[in-house]
């Protein structure tokens, strides 16, 4: 690079996520879907081989996508392209960095590669997004270098209840932290299993130091708007668009509802005539070992 510049600073990494705020990031499995997502107004796409609903249905070990697939999607669109690495699989992350994706998702949707450690994300120039079900988990991921957090929800179900639970948990824990006195924050850090400095920062600022999106089970315009009204910075839609009857219309409708999330008339109109939503599975019917959101430590 030219002189007087520094690349890949934490600010530059989290800065891209700032630019995605208010937007929708869609899972896509090929160039055609990526173009549909871009045309609908998605701010980024997540390139992967199988959407979570298919990973769930087909079972087996889910891994990083084929580089050819990722390259094909990168060539098809001009919006940022994200790709998933397995939890703890730092070589998959190295490969994705070599492919020059714009963001890496260290994702519980894939089969974990390490049941103890996550990736040391400070070692990478590419920014990472990581899932979290509660504040402590979010702060541990930020400590490891995540530049963006997404609440996990339960991917591939079309059931938004876990996403609701996770965003309410994270924001509730932040609110409760803000009400504690300074001398109570040491114990708060112990309880959250997160570094004291970060806990203190969150308590003082009343928010996470990075952008937080919601993911997992968002299937309708109203789902997306509900997440935004609860305070999400944006929404990931995985299986919800391309497992539905009319992906083109549904993608545009979810973008519209996410943007104008406070306008019930707009959401009502966006909800009309979208055809079949993804069929989905109730999270309560999923046996515990099949709950992806429990992956992450």
């Amino acid at each position: 690079m030219t002189n007087n510049t520094t690349e890949s600073t934490p600010l530059v990494k989290s800065g891209l996520a700032e630019m995605l705020k208010g937007g929708v990031i869609m899972d896509v499995v090929n160039a055609e879907q990526a173009i549909i997502a871009q045309d609908a107004g998605a701010v980024a796409v997540m390139a992967l081989e199988r959407v979570p609903a298919d990973i769930r249905a087909q079972g087996g070990v889910a891994r990083m996508s084929d580089p050819d697939l990722i390259d094909g999607i990168r060539a098809a669109v001009s919006i940022p392209v994200m790709a998933k690495a397995r939890i703890g699989h730092f070589v998959e992350a190295q490969v994705l960095q070599a492919l020059k994706v714009d963001y890496i998702d260290e994702s519980e949707v894939l089969s974990p590669a390490d049941y103890i450690n996550h990736i040391d994300k400070w070692k990478f120039d590419i920014p990472f997004v990581c899932g979290a079900t509660n504040l402590g988990e979010a702060l541990r991921r930020i400590t490891e270098g995540a530049a963006m957090i997404r609440s996990k929800g339960e991917a591939g179900t079309g059931d938004v209840s876990e996403a609701t639970k996770h965003i309410r948990t994270i924001f509730g824990e932040i609110r409760s932290l803000s009400s504690r006195s300074d001398d109570e924050l040491f114990v708060a850090a112990k309880e959250l299993q997160a570094p004291y400095a970060l806990v203190k920062q969150v308590a003082r600022e009343g928010k996470l130091p990075v952008v937080m999106f919601v993911a997992g089970g968002v299937a309708t315009p109203a789902d997306a708007a509900m997440m935004m009204q609860m305070g999400a910075d944006g929404v990931f839609v995985g299986s919800g668009v391309f497992k539905s009857g009319n992906p083109v219309a549904r993608a545009a409708a979810i973008v519209k509802a996410t943007t104008l999330f406070n306008d019930a008339d707009v959401i009502a109109n966006a909800s009309r005539g979208l055809g079949e939503a993804m069929v989905g599975i109730n999270v309560s019917d999923l046996p515990a070992p099949h709950r992806l959101s429990e992956r992450g430590w």
Binding site: V12, L16, K100, V101, D102, I126
Partner: peptide, 15 residues
Amino acid sequence: ERNAYGGQLSSFEGS
């Protein structure tokens, strides 16, 4: 020119 410096890997802070 859009994305003239490249993708996210080429993002930077400067004066």
